[in-house]
Amino acid sequence: LCKQLRLAHVAEAIKEVPFTEPEEYIYQILLKEQVGREQAKIARNLKQARFIDTKTLETYQWHKDICLPSHLTKEELEQLDFIQRKENVILVGAPGTGKTHLASALGRKACEYG
């Protein structure tokens, strides 16, 4: 029945969620289904993006030679505000300055946000 209803994560949740009250039990199972779907969506987005490396913003080294336009802060860039404003980001610099790392990390975060 779970397969017919496309509830792929419920079968696992039934084993994990302790039964307390009927409403709470159903809520926790459905919550696990939702989380499982979100994780599967992120995995699909990342696979479709075909990133070469696993670069993240946490491992990116910001240094003094990185210059951003005066209207843009590091935090705004990391929050992906430019996507909502439908703006492009152009990274320019010498080889080895971290352009690919930053671009991949921003793309990975965008995939995680859906």
Rank of each mutant, 00 (worst) to 15 (best):
Q61H: 13
E76G: 00
Q48D: 13
T73N: 00
P69R: 13
A43S: 14
I90R: 02
A94V: 12
G36K: 02
A13H: 02
A49R: 14
A13N: 01
A8V: 05
E12L: 11
L5I: 05
R6V: 14
P95N: 14
L106P: 15
G93T: 12
K41T: 09
T97Q: 04
K15S: 11
E78R: 01
I66N: 02
G36Y: 01
T20M: 02
V17E: 04
Q39K: 08
L91G: 05
A94H: 09
G98F: 04
S104G: 13
N88G: 08
Q4R: 08
D53Q: 11
V89N: 12
L7T: 06
L57I: 14
V92Q: 11
N45M: 06
Q79I: 04
K47T: 13
L68Q: 07
Q61M: 14
A11W: 06
R50W: 05
E87C: 05
T100Y: 03
L5G: 09
I90T: 12
C67F: 09
E33W: 03
K32Y: 10
E58Y: 10
V35P: 01
F82M: 04
Q84I: 12
Q4E: 10
G36Q: 01
R50M: 05
G93I: 12
E75R: 12
E38R: 15
A49S: 12
E78I: 04
A49N: 00
